[in-house]
């Protein structure tokens, strides 16, 4: 299900989270200019790639001649966690008409996925919340990267205001509810442990996949783990 009411609710729910993303967008725009991208390229990249961490990673590889294969691999590695987000939302996503499914997938990202999880825990199945939240994040990311590109290399020190912990702090608020249920603690513990242990063993970002899969398997393997909705 995907409703306009849900879309509006998603926009409202994510507006304040998008606010905390502003410094990251500005930082990316400024860094991209320094890496040699034109304004048009920066705007296009934010609009159609729309993946902050992957875009920052691309800048590391942005030298002539552009290493297309390396760029493709790094983007795949950094974004591989999207597989897990998509799989977790599959029962809802696959019930949508194709056009809405593609739209939902295009705006699927960490923050609105996490927000959708919160909504599901409260009983909602409306992917409008995911799309509305994603739309706000997308708008904000595009506006702020363009602004950063325009004002140029004035990267602010984000740790001074605690902005660097904002996204992780938001994720903590999302997992707080399932953490209150004892049966969830073991899968969550397994996920955390595997993610940390594999951090230095796997390519960038794949520790998240390993941790998530291990947590998922633990949830099935342990008897008495009840369903979350």
């Amino acid at each position: 299900m995907l409703t306009f009411e849900g879309f509006k609710a998603g926009m409202r729910r994510m507006a304040w989270v998008a606010l905390f993303g502003v410094p990251f967008g500005i930082a990316f725009g400024a860094a991209a200019v320094e890496a040699g991208l034109s304004m048009a390229e920066i705007v296009a990249m934010s609009a159609i790639v729309y993946a902050g961490a992957a875009q920052f990673a691309m800048l590391q590889l942005w030298q002539q001649p552009l290493p297309l294969l390396s760029i493709a691999f790094v983007v795949l590695a950094v974004n591989a966690r999207h597989f897990i987000f998509g799989a977790a939302l599959a029962p809802l996503l696959n019930a949508l008409p194709m056009r809405q499914r593609l739209l939902s997938a295009f705006v699927l990202s960490d923050a609105n996925f996490a927000d959708m999880q919160s909504a599901r825990q409260s009983g909602s199945k409306d992917l409008g919340i995911l799309v509305g939240g994603g739309f706000v994040m997308w708008l904000s990311w595009n506006a702020t990267t363009a602004l950063g590109a325009f004002i140029g290399g004035s990267e602010k020190d984000m740790s001074r205001f605690g902005i660097d912990v904002a996204m992780a702090a938001f994720f903590v608020t999302v997992v707080a509810a399932p953490a209150r249920r004892a049966s969830n603690l073991l899968p969550m513990g397994v996920a955390a442990l595997v993610s940390v242990v594999t951090l230095s063993l796997l390519p960038h970002g794949w520790n998240v996949i390993a941790g998530a899969l291990a947590g998922g398997i633990a949830g099935v393997a342990i008897p008495g783990v009840t369903r979350e909705r």
């Binding site: 977790a88 029962p91 960490d110 999880q117 999302v174 993610s195 941790g211 947590g215 979350e228």
Partner: peptide, 19 residues
């Protein structure tokens, strides 16, 4: 379904743990 339910929470936990 149980796998997907655990997966949805685990992926967020894994991101935070890595951070």
């Amino acid at each position: 379904q149980r796998f997907l339910d655990s997966l949805s929470t685990s992926v967020i936990v894994a991101i935070v743990a890595g951070f």
